[in-house]
Nucleic acid binder design. Structure first.
Length: 644
RNA sequence: GCUGAUAUAGCUCAAUUGAUUAGAGCUCUUGACUUGUAAUCAAGUGGUUGUGGGUUUGAGUCCCUCUAUCAGCUCCA
């Protein structure tokens, strides 16, 4: 007999070789029907796999992330089975579960799949699912595994096998379909009740640009049709928050084919928003001892030869601008740091002046690949909220802490609580990839790790993700469709001070090399605003929003009063507009609601007589706040601002 | 950059298998209405169907080029 400990702490005795499914059955039939997989100690197993020892056991259902991951992985196998039935010559790459759903990379030769084909595959999947075929696990000797896929002619699976050790290889079979797979899987295909194949895209084999491009089919599935419907509804909702759509609707920014791809054009309302973000950060930085500088949009090519960027990115950048003078070339600046290094270098520095923090909202231009351009999130011209801190190695940690504090403050103010902080360190295997001394790297990595620990920040650490010039800390935030984007970044740099021969005189009266920190809490205004739009669905916080209120006169007789009220508010730094159109009140309210104007002020006969405004808040059930005097409104408004 | 898809009025979308004058709603303009908390009514303006070529008696519709956009991959100083 073995002891199985359940999550509630209870211990039950079973025969050795009992499966998770049998354990579930012993608790309740209903539960057994919903079990997708089991967590045995820290590993996820098939629910049908015999348990031989004393373990902690958790039954995973569709309520558990791990349960759904298993479900989706099994769905990928089901899709593969359907594909093999419909396209006998198909070859398979990999087919994993992803955060929401699954995909399979396949090679169909010259065949191209259309939307209709996807529906056909879905139908086949459901048909196969109804057969309730069990997913059967089979350990497989490597030689046999190779023989199987050689016979089948699937070179992708053969390549995957190369990387696997004999003895660790397992196959899974459901119905007539067999696949190389580590598992685990759900008990049987019948649990997959609802399937939607979402799209088809190209994907390089093993993520390598130089290798074959396969067809990737993305899909999602659920144990209940209702769940699929709900998922698709949420997806639709998310699309409504897409910043590209809202940016157009709210008249924040635009693109023009004639101006050029990836070059955003900011409209008046968007510019107002941008400037408010800039003001906010500028004030915050001033408190922290940053000095603003301003540098040109272009720089001599030699500047980038010196910085090393020309060698690394020259070919893939906007090409240099020539002048009437032979041999003279300028480049659009792809970053601000070389200019800032020149600012540092313009005169000698004493250690007493450090740290020196210089900041600039610097607009930079990078020739991003055409397929990469994406609304405001990935553009070819954008403004970084850039700053460079030049400090002594001893000051690195405290500077890092201050920048970290600033970045977290910004995120908090914007209400971004759901972000990932990633520490990128050296690849210890490849020290030759990095420049700078081992001592410096050790110190910098230690400074980053300690700083994040001191502020209690949860981080993920990636080895080998550091830039060649130093370790960094990046902040990632997800957009409406759960795509991850990097916003803020803090990077330590030993390279540029070296290349620009930056120095300071220490207390020992000898010259030393300063350390440089690049940092941008927003990252870029463009990307930051794109994420802000998607997180708020266009309902920006009051302090940021272009129009804080709309005054809605009941008829054109009250426009004059409305204008007077507006002037009064303007004097109090409350901004908005009068909707003086010859339209009904209902109509003007609807338009303001749709445009997400947070406060509507209705004025008519009653208000004119009493010197009041009737207040309605946007998008709220209890939005009607009744009439208040303009003076009371100012107080009310300032209170709302405070509460943010 | 790669794979696949898409491009019709300012916006969102129609337009049998290639066939008369490319339609609708919203926006905009004009007129009527003088409005009290999510769309008042009527009329009107608005298109070289993304670009350049081709096939055809005839192209929004079929083929090619380029540009832009969308999904994903790759990349991201």
């Amino acid at each position: 007999m073995i002891n199985i400990t359940l999550p509630d702490g209870s211990i039950r005795k079973y025969e050795s070789g009992t499966t998770g499914l049998e354990v579930a059955k012993s608790i309740s039939e209903g539960l057994a029907r919903n079990v997708l997989a089991v967590k045995v100690d820290e590993e996820i197993w098939d629910a049908s796999r015999p348990i031989e020892n004393d373990v902690h056991l958790r039954l995973l259902t569709s309520r558990d992330t791990e349960g759904m991951m298993t479900f989706w992985h099994s769905s990928a196998h089901l899709m593969a089975e359907a594909l093999e039935a419909l396209y006998p010559n198909v070859k398979f790459g990999i087919g994993p579960a992803i955060e929401t759903g699954f995909y399979y990379d396949i090679d169909l030769g010259d065949q191209v799949l259309s939307k209709n084909d996807l529906e056909k595959i879905e139908k086949k999947m459901i048909e196969l699912a109804r057969q309730k075929n069990e997913y059967v696990r089979k350990p497989m000797p490597k030689a046999e595994a190779i023989a199987y896929f050689e016979e089948k002619g699937d070179e992708y699976k053969l390549e995957l096998l190369e990387g696997l050790e004999d003895g660790s290889i397992t196959f899974y079979q459901q119905g007539g379909f067999v696949d190389l797979c580590r598992g685990p899987h759900i008990p049987h295909t019948g649990l997959i009740k609802a399937v939607k194949l979402l799209n088809v895209a190209g994907a390089y084999w093993r993520g390598d640009e130089t290798r074959a491009q396969m067809t990737r089919i993305y899909g999602v599935s659920f144990p209940k049709a209702k769940e699929l419907k709900e998922h698709l509804r949420l997806l639709e909702e998310a699309k409504k928050r897409d910043h590209r759509k809202l940016g157009k609707e709210l008249e924040l920014f635009m693109f023009s084919e004639r101006v050029g791809a990836g070059l955003p054009i900011w409209l008046p309302k968007g510019t107002a928003l941008r400037n408010r973000l800039k003001d906010f950060l500028t004030k915050e930085q001033a408190k922290r001892g940053y000095q603003l500088v301003s540098t040109p949009h272009i720089g001599n090519k030699h500047l980038y030869v010196t910085s090393g960027h020309y060698e690394k990115y020259g070919e893939d950048s906007f090409q240099s601008i020539s002048t009437p003078r032979e041999g003279e070339e300028f480049m659009l600046k792809p970053m601000n740091c070389p200019h800032h290094c020149e600012i540092y270098a313009h005169r000698p520095h004493s250690y007493k002046e450090l740290p020196m923090r210089i900041a600039e909202f610097g607009t930079v231009y990078r020739y991003e690949q055409s397929g990469e351009l994406h609304g405001l999130s990935r553009v070819r011209g954008f403004t970084q909220d850039d700053a460079h801190i030049f400090c002594t190695p001893d000051q690195l940690k405290s500077e890092f802490l201050d920048v970290l504090d600033l970045t977290l403050m910004v995120f908090k103010k914007m209400g971004f609580s759901d972000f990932t902080a990633q520490i990128s360190l050296r690849d210890p295997e490849k020290p030759e990839k990095y420049i700078g001394s081992t001592e410096n790297w050790d110190a910098a990595e230690k400074a980053i790790i300690e700083a994040t620990q001191e502020v209690g920040l949860t981080t993920v650490t990636e080895l080998g993700e550091a830039a060649f010039y130093g370790p960094k800390l990046d902040f990632m935030v997800k957009d409406a469709l759960k795509r991850s984007w990097q916003l803020g970044t803090i990077q330590v740099d030993y390279n540029l001070p070296e290349r620009f021969d930056l120095e300071y005189t220490g207390s020992d009266n000898t010259t030393h090399r300063p350390v440089m920190i690049h940092r941008a809490p927003f990252g870029s205004l463009e990307r930051f605003i794109s994420v802000l739009i998607e997180h708020t669905a266009g309902k920006f916080p009051l302090w940021l929003i272009p129009d804080q209120y709309a005054i809605i006169p009941v008829s054109d007789k009250y426009v004059e009063y409305a204008e007077k009220v507006k002037a009064e508010f303007e004097a109090q730094d409350i901004r908005g507009f009068v909707d003086g159109r010859n339209e009904t009140v209902k109509r003007k309210i609807r338009d303001a609601e749709v445009k997400r104007v947070p406060i509507m002020l209705i004025v008519g006969e009653k208000e004119v007589e009493s010197g009041k405004v009737s207040v309605r808040l946007q998008g709220k059930e209890d939005g009607d706040k009744g009439a208040m005097t303009t003076g009371d409104f100012v107080t009310f408004f300032k209170q709302l601002l405070e509460e943010e």
